[in-house]
């Protein structure tokens, strides 16, 4: 009923990467509004090279989250990102489904 039994689940991958001495950031969906592709609590984990595993949106905003995560890893301070529909603000990466999500990105210390 949960994702914990998935092979290669993101938090297991994050632990393994950290054990290999890689920089790791964890992105977590903390809030959703409307139809969001991944439920609250879903994870995307990113390493210092931009490799990633898991998902926070089913593909729509992962690219943006990965680049923010790389900044977070170099700065060290966590960030909260918000993604919405991609229609009004052209620069914004959006969710095609019309929902809105908040994603917390932190560096694994």
């Amino acid at each position: 009923m949960n994702d914990t039994q998935e092979p290669l689940d993101p938090l297991t991958v994050a632990e393994r990467w950290a054990g290999e001495g890689r920089d790791v950031a964890i992105a977590t969906v903390v809030e959703t509004w409307g139809s969001a592709p991944r439920p609250v609590g879903s994870h995307l984990v990113i390493d210092g090279e931009g490799n990633f595993h898991g998902s926070v949106s089913g593909g729509c905003v992962e690219g943006a989250v990965v680049s923010e995560a790389i900044d977070v890893m170099s700065e060290g301070r966590p960030r909260v990102l918000e993604f919405g529909v991609a229609d009004e603000t052209a620069w914004q990466v959006g969710l095609s489904c019309g929902g809105r999500i908040r994603v917390f990105v932190e560096k694994l210390r």
Binding site: M1, N2, T4, T28, G41
Partner: peptide, 22 residues
């Protein structure tokens, strides 16, 4: 089994609940 943001003492906390699959 639902995770959520909770406000306490003016700060936001995220409670991410991990239940074993039934």
């Amino acid at each position: 089994g639902k995770s959520a943001v909770v406000e306490a003492d003016g700060r936001d906390y995220f409670l991410n609940v991990h239940l074993p699959p039934a």
